[in-house]
């Protein structure tokens, strides 16, 4: 009888890196093909938020003239974060319940946790796209607002990190909840996340509402919004940039590990 070691020798080393690249390429190619539909889907809601809260309420005099400067970085952060979250969680629940399309990937010669990493990376790319497309659109809708060209690269970095945190949370949610419960959970989780994430207000100025300030401090999105303000509109009070980066990194890593573990449980019966 041949031993396991001999069998190992007879089978080439698994081409993990190339396999990972092929899986990511497949996802990117499919996204590229449906890019117009994808962009339409991700820009509509934030566009209306910017227009109504920034332009309309500003013109009517209900909000100050510089509210647009507070709102735009927040909305970009929100779009990247939620983009990452939804684009990871929703396809996953479909894959694990109804279509089972992901089985082909689960049978590829790479460890299952790397398939989870690929899905999170891909969710991050989609979140980053959803955030980045809001920069030009935001400037268009909010004519009074200006951002320095030099702030764009760090803003993209913050978007990427924010999208990654969102994607990792999406992976955790999408694998922890049964496909039947996902709609309920989404409704219960998404709205509170969106409105306690310092998207529509600068967190330091919540001093007069201390309990709400504490609630917002627990939401990872707050740090994405604040970091975005730190790089785009530094004149507005914001949390320290390094603190935001640290929280995003720690939250992202924590949820990524939880998500990958959940994915492993879900992927194997």
């Amino acid at each position: 009888m041949t031993t396991i070691d001999e069998a190992r020798a007879a089978t080439p080393r698994p081409p993990v890196a190339r396999s990972f690249a092929a899986i990511l390429t497949r996802d990117l190619v499919v996204t590229w093909r449906e890019l117009p539909a994808f962009l339409t889907q991700v820009v509509l809601q934030p566009l209306f938020i910017l227009f109504v809260f920034g332009t309309v309420l500003g013109d009517l005099g209900y909000v100050g003239g510089d509210f647009g400067a507070v709102l735009l970085p927040g909305v970009i952060a929100l779009n990247a974060f939620i983009g990452g979250l939804q684009n990871t969680a929703l396809p996953l629940t479909l894959d694990f319940s109804y279509s089972r399309e992901i089985e082909d990937r689960l049978l590829a010669p790479l460890p299952i946790w790397l398939v989870a990493v690929e899905k999170m990376l891909f969710g991050t790319v989609r979140g980053l796209l959803a955030g980045a497309v809001m920069i030009p659109l935001g400037l268009l809708v909010l004519p009074g607002t200006e951002i320095a060209l030099a702030s764009v690269p760090p803003a993209l970095l913050v978007m990427a990190l924010g999208a990654f945190v969102g994607s990792a949370i999406g992976m955790t949610l999408g694998t922890a909840v049964s496909p039947r419960g996902i709609n309920t959970v989404f409704a219960m989780v998404l709205t509170p996340l969106m409105f306690t994430g310092a998207t529509q207000f600068p967190w330091p100025q919540l001093e007069r509402l201390p309990w709400f300030q504490v609630v917002c401090a627990l939401n990872p999105l707050t740090y994405v919004s604040e970091a975005m303000r730190a790089v785009m509109v530094p004149q507005i009070p914001h949390l320290a940039f390094w603190l935001c980066l640290l929280v995003m990194a720690v939250a992202g890593a924590g949820f990524a590990v939880a998500g990958a573990l959940g994915f492993g449980r879900r992927a194997l019966d």
Binding site: T2, T3, I4, E6, A7, R8, A10, T11, P12, P14, V16, L107, A108, P109, L110, P111, I112
Partner: peptide, 17 residues
């Protein structure tokens, strides 16, 4: 064991064959 590879401990390798 598939082709000498334990499907639990050598899953990634086994998926190649």
């Amino acid at each position: 064991v598939v082709e000498g590879l334990d499907v639990l401990r050598e899953a990634t390798r086994a998926r190649q064959v």
